[in-house]
Design a protein around this nucleic acid. Structure first.
Length: 289
DNA sequence: TGCAGTGTTGCTTC
DNA sequence: CGAAGCAACACTGC
């Protein structure tokens, strides 16, 4: 999906709804989403009867800890988002029960539905079908997740930790920020936003950043992500919260997808360049190379 | 009609 | 060997 703030928002929304619920069934019309175990019937068999004990986030992964020491990992990739509600199958299409946000066009692409013991459902809407779902033994999954870089919103993420993570790294700062092995959870939107806040050019070589610049990137990273979580994530793409509504980060979005618009700081036209296969948005005047 | 797109991995090229 | 580029996954919206 979407990035750290959107995943965090999804978890916050689900926590109040699905904690302590037990899975009674699963439906899918795109079984390739289930990567582990690969056989969908096997997945269903193993999942049925398991209870959700905890929900948490690591990088952009959503993890449901279940009874019997199992865990589900959901990665929403580009367009996936988890919704909570009730749907009825009518003429081969899932129709949301009741009106409102669940009728949003982006909430139509349901390819996987979990059924709970209270009659409610958790659905994965995913236009591009890149999302993945895996069932793990909790201990094995934890080992896998240890390979990911530090969590920027955790208390232990000090400036020293940040410096350490960037030490000996080569390349352009934006790509380093987006590398999950360096720092967890930052993607294309927030990398651009963070660097605008920090007044650093996205192509600046990491090795050439001085202490003061590193510090402003560190501060901006925490600040931008915290604000985005508070606002419930972005709202210009097809990301939706579990209740189907949009986040409110748009009021804080300064550069991403704002090519040609005026920089909020100096009025210069925002530029878009492409490297590393992705678009970077920035102000060519107040972000220093 | 053509292109760009929130993520990640793995292959190819230099 | 490392860095960088690119394809793959699949589909919609502009």
């Amino acid at each position: 999906m979407p990035e750290l703030p959107e995943v965090e928002t999804t978890i916050n929304g689900l926590k109040t709804k699905v904690l302590s619920r037990t899975f009674v069934d699963v439906w899918s019309d795109w079984k390739k989403t289930i990567k582990k175990p690969k056989d969908f019937e096997q997945f269903k068999k193993e999942l049925k009867g398991k209870k959700i004990k905890n929900i948490w986030r690591r990088a952009k992964n959503i993890i449901f800890d279940l009874s019997d020491n199992y865990s589900i990992l959901v990665h929403q990739k580009m367009t996936g988002h988890l919704l909570y509600g009730t749907w009825n199958m009518e003429h081969g299409i899932w129709i949301p029960v009741g009106k409102g946000p669940l009728n949003d066009p982006y909430n139509r692409f349901l390819h996987l539905i979990f059924f709970f013991d209270n009659g409610k459902m958790m659905a994965l809407s995913d236009v591009r079908k890149f999302a993945k779902v895996e069932l793990w033994k909790t201990e094995e999954l934890k080992k896998e997740l240890d390979k990911i870089g530090p969590e920027p919103l955790e208390k232990g993420f000090t400036f020293e930790k940040f410096e350490e993570a960037l030490k000996n790294k080569k390349g352009r700062i934006k790509q380093i920020l987006m590398n999950p092995e360096v720092i967890a959870g930052i993607g294309n939107i927030y990398a651009s936003e963070i660097l605008w806040q920090a007044k650093i050019h996205p192509e600046k070589n990491v090795a050439k950043l001085n202490g003061k610049e590193l510090e402003s990137i560190y501060e901006a990273t925490k600040r931008v992500l915290e604000i985005a979580v508070k606002l419930g994530g972005e709202s210009f793409s097809d990301y939706r919260k579990p209740d189907g509504t949009k986040g409110d980060f748009d009021s804080e979005r300064r550069v991403y997808k704002r090519e040609g618009q005026k920089c909020a700081r100096c009025g210069t036209k925002i530029k878009r360049i492409k490297f590393g296969g992705r678009s970077a948005f920035f102000c060519p005047v107040c972000q220093k190379l």
